[in-house]
């Protein structure tokens, strides 16, 4: 117990040291940039300037402050990223089951899934947009495509990891396929599914932001590029950078938390 506590303390210390180091490097960089450039806030503003802009009342466009812009547009982007993520997770789950149940499905789909995964999202997004003619649907579809693959492949690995004796046990009980899947195969693959979800969650968010940039209107990506083009305060850009990074990390943490809910025996390990 003391050993475990010592370890978690060390972990926290490492994180704190990293954050402090990053802040120092950032601030040194900002000070250097400040002296050389005419508009240093475009290249590397001081962290204090960014924080200040978050709490500033100054309207930067359409009667909104910089932070209000970030929050309203984040809602538009993240909601679609979330919906796409759920669709993708569901489709990945079902396809993994189908690939495991029918070897022909695996042979027929698996190599092509990998190919879809190799097309850069930057190339795929305009095609999806051209087909759907709708930016919201495109956000959802791209997020779903990105989520779907890691969930399907990881879950398939999980389904294949079941030991022979566990099958023998089920067979000796004359268990139905339904029982074999619900009591053995799916529970075994839960940690694998969550590995996939943890990879996919931040990716779905990044991809949705990228899809935003394809069309004007709204969304974090649109604001990002407008801010870069000086259509509005550059601090919108910096706020979005930090905001997106934070949300990406939180999405990962959310998946870890959900995994703990689904695996009580892992919680028991932690509590020991």
């Amino acid at each position: 117990m003391t050993e475990a506590r010592k370890n978690s303390l060390t972990d926290k210390l490492v994180i704190i040291v990293w954050i402090i180091a990053l802040i120092i490097v950032w601030e040194i960089g900002a000070s250097v940039v400040e002296k050389t450039k005419r508009s240093p806030q475009n290249v590397l503003p001081h962290l204090s300037q960014i924080v200040e802009s978050v709490f500033s009342d100054k309207m930067v466009s359409n009667k909104q402050t910089a932070f209000q812009i970030v929050i309203t547009n984040a809602g538009i982007t993240l909601l679609r990223a979330g919906i796409g993520f759920l669709y993708g997770a569901g489709a990945g789950f079902l396809l993994a089951l189908a690939m495991h149940r029918f070897i022909t499905v695996e042979k027929a789909t698996f190599p092509y899934l990998m190919m879809i995964q190799m097309i850069p999202i930057l190339g795929m997004a305009p095609i999806v947009l051209a087909i759907t003619q709708d930016i919201n649907k495109s956000r959802i579809i791209i997020a779903a495509i990105l989520t779907f693959y890691p969930v399907a492949t990881n879950m398939l690995d999980g389904l294949k990891s079941v030991e022979k004796e566990k099958y023998d046990l089920m067979r000796s009980l004359a268990a139905s396929n339904w029982n074999i899947y619900t009591k053995l195969l799916i529970p075994t693959s839960i940690p694998y599914i969550f590995s996939g979800l943890k990879i996919a969650a931040p990716m779905a968010i990044t991809a949705s932001i990228l899809v935003d940039t394809l069309q004007g209107g709204a969304g974090l990506g649109t604001m990002l590029s407008q801010s870069l083009k000086h259509a509005m305060s550059i601090y919108v850009f910096w706020q979005i950078v930090f905001f997106s990074a934070t949300v990406g990390i939180l999405s990962y943490k959310l998946m870890s938390f959900a995994e703990k809910i689904f695996s009580p025996h892992e919680r028991a390990k932690g509590a020991r």
């Binding site: 030991e163 004796e165 566990k166 023998d168 046990l169 009591k183 053995l184 529970p187 839960i190 695996s263 009580p264 025996h265």
Partner: peptide, 9 residues
């Protein structure tokens, strides 16, 4: 079985 083959969850 030789190993306990328990469901760890």
């Amino acid at each position: 079985f030789q190993s306990p083959v328990l469901y760890e969850w």
